[in-house]
Write a protein that binds this DNA or RNA. Structure first.
Lengths: 195, 195
DNA sequence: TTGTGTATATTCACTAGTCGGTATACATAG
DNA sequence: CTATGTATACCGACTAGTGAATATACACAA
């Protein structure tokens, strides 16, 4: 029974994170993860009962960092709530320029596992996306926006649309366009227009 | 040199389409495609020079059918252009209920190939998504919408966001929400509001 | 202090099977 | 007799996962 907080386990998850995000879960072997972590495959299987479990652990480790990153962008932005929402997209577009950027690990993993809807990693991804949506709705509510839940959901759709389209076109203009659309939707809820 | 219109080739692409869409390109072997097509792997490699080529052919074969399907939904919808746009989403939500529905093959393939941005299949996907965006912009323009290109792009983002989120949450409510957001964006361009 | 038992943690070597791709041969049709 | 298409059989590399042995650390008894 391995410890849940073992430093070895952390090394394995870190190695898996680097490789799975860079190459995709299907293109990375358990052998490759073990080598990247600097230990043998047998040790890896001592800490994780299967590759599927390792994949879930990889995503679980990305939940809070990703959330904090988005929240940081939102908090740091100047101006009204529409500008704060737009800031998420402009920062996303900036991040997408990095050569190591490969989209959203949660969405890519869900795409790879589309034929296994009950996979533990997809449940982790679902929880992460819900966490983000809930956090955003809370922020929007604090800013006095009407129907914050509905608006948060629409913004989430634009963010995840940006992630997906970027993998096809590799053109950050789409992320900027999504940011403008999001700002439009925010203003529609501030003005109290027709929904 | 195999013929481009060979019925054998078509049988192979049809088999690949069924398997690649159902399981994902990485989880389907060339052997499996050959068996599904009812011929040997050697014959498959007579018609396609590599698995990568076969993947590109699979997506290429989906370009026009997918386009026509979306256009059919748009054309058949009653009401103003906002209702026609929303109809794409409501039909999408309906389609997503089918047990064989596994999201957008183009996006899922791009996600699987995120580490190979120049892959021929991604180019095919990029062209398909551009074709759709161009068609939609034309329809919006015909309906007298302002800035049809910008609006088409925003709607594309919501559609692809719906595809992606559905693979995580398996909840069609997100598609309906995207449809309402799209209709809001359309009306903002009809009224001539702030962009 | 020394010896022994036990749980945790790690390694080497291996299995049984799959992967994309190919060498060779054999049809059949122009 | 050449071009097109198909089949059998095979290749070396890689796949997820495992069996058996062992290293390490700490508890407790003599």
């Amino acid at each position: 029974m391995p410890e849940a907080q073992s430093p070895t386990r952390k090394r394995i998850v870190d190695a898996a994170t680097r490789l799975f995000y860079a190459e995709g879960i299907g293109r990375v072997s358990v052998d490759a993860v073990a080598e990247e972590a600097g230990l043998t495959k047998r040790t890896l299987y001592y800490h994780f009962k299967s590759k599927d479990d390792l994949i879930a652990a990889y995503l679980d480790g990305r939940d809070q960092p990703n959330l904090k990153r988005m929240a940081g962008w939102f908090d740091a932005a100047e101006g009204g709530v529409d500008r704060k929402v737009e800031a998420i997209f402009t920062n996303l577009a900036k991040a997408a320029h990095h050569p190591k950027w490969k989209g959203c690990g949660f969405l890519r993993t869900a795409a790879e596992l589309a034929s296994m809807p009950g996979h533990p990693a997809i449940k982790v991804g679902s929880r992460h996306k819900s966490n983000f949506e809930t956090w955003l709705a809370g922020e929007l509510s604090d800013c006095g926006v009407e129907e914050p839940q509905a608006l948060a959901r629409e913004i989430v759709l634009l963010i995840d649309g940006s992630f997906s389209i970027m993998l096809i076109h590799r053109n950050p203009d789409y992320v900027e366009a999504a940011g403008r659309a999001a700002a439009t939707l925010v203003r529609a809820r501030i003005a109290g227009d027709q929904v």
